[in-house]
Design a protein around this nucleic acid. Structure first.
Lengths: 147, 147
DNA sequence: GATCCTGTTGCAACTGGTTGCAACAACCGT
DNA sequence: ACGGTTGTTGCAACCAGTTGCAACAGGATC
């Protein structure tokens, strides 16, 4: 909560953007959310607060908040939108195809890849957007010997 | 084209699956496609061959063909389905947020990450499903100094 | 060639998300 | 407090993809 939700209104106004009731609702919901949420989850939770909530408004506001840096989005394994609230550090995600578990990739794990791509292709990785799919330890040891 | 499209019919029948006109259409379209295609692109191209093509049939057939190993799918930067025809080698994708360019990640580039995740978390990466987002050399050197 | 079994198709409805547009309202200036 | 500017909302239509289901049709069997 370091650069928390408290000054969102100001940050918006600084850019000539507005602080509307709908945005307050979404920010309130976000401030109660931890880690990763999907778009439709957020829509649903906003509707609990204000049943008149419209999806398009939520998604558009999410875009705005992302521009301000309060969240990042990525795409989950099913291609669904996934939001990442108040990222402390850039980090990617690991998703198990079999059990569906998701865990975070520590920057150290990705350091090799990031620097390899930078050196070899001059490519600057945006780690927060990365979801790597595969099999987690449990599922891998479960499946490989058998099949 | 090593294990090409020629014997698809047999491969299906071996598994008790069927070789239908609709599947022939899709396979014909796929055999003319190179590299990466999105789902809707395939639907469209099938419709050029057979205007009666239905999306659900195409997607279901794609699932079947993926099971047989003739293609792999992943999710592009916008979360859209992306198919990867006749994969010679497992490889991921690099996508530039700015210019939209996509290039392939060579296995060597990812080797470090893959082995780091295996060692540290026992996680087996499915490289073909990975799309890494960031900025390509051109866009990175374009943007970073300025902004 | 007729028959049966079961995989497959096409439809229609639905999910998650996006977009164009006209009406609206936050905020600034007076 | 009032008006005007312009960012924002909500609607409705749409896009990409998925699913349940009843009708259909491969292909093996007789």
């Amino acid at each position: 909560m370091a650069t928390g939700w408290a000054d969102v209104a100001e940050r918006l106004r600084e850019r000539g953007l507005r602080w509307t009731p709908q945005r307050q609702t979404l920010v309130e919901v976000l401030s109660r959310s931890d880690g990763h949420v999907t778009g439709s989850e957020l829509v649903e939770r906003c509707r609990e607060v204000d049943p008149a909530t419209t999806p398009s408004t939520v998604y558009r506001t999410l875009d705005v908040l992302e521009e301000i840096g309060l969240l990042r989005h990525g795409h989950g394994p099913a291609g669904r939108e996934e939001f990442h609230v108040l990222p402390k550090a850039e980090h990617g995600h690991l998703h198990c195809q079999d059990c569906g578990a998701t865990r975070e990739i520590e920057p150290a794990d990705a350091a090799g890849l990031v620097s390899a791509l930078r050196r070899r292709h001059g490519f600057e990785v945006d780690l927060s957007h990365v979801t790597i799919v595969g099999r987690c330890a449990a599922c891998a040891s479960d499946a490989s010997p058998g099949a």
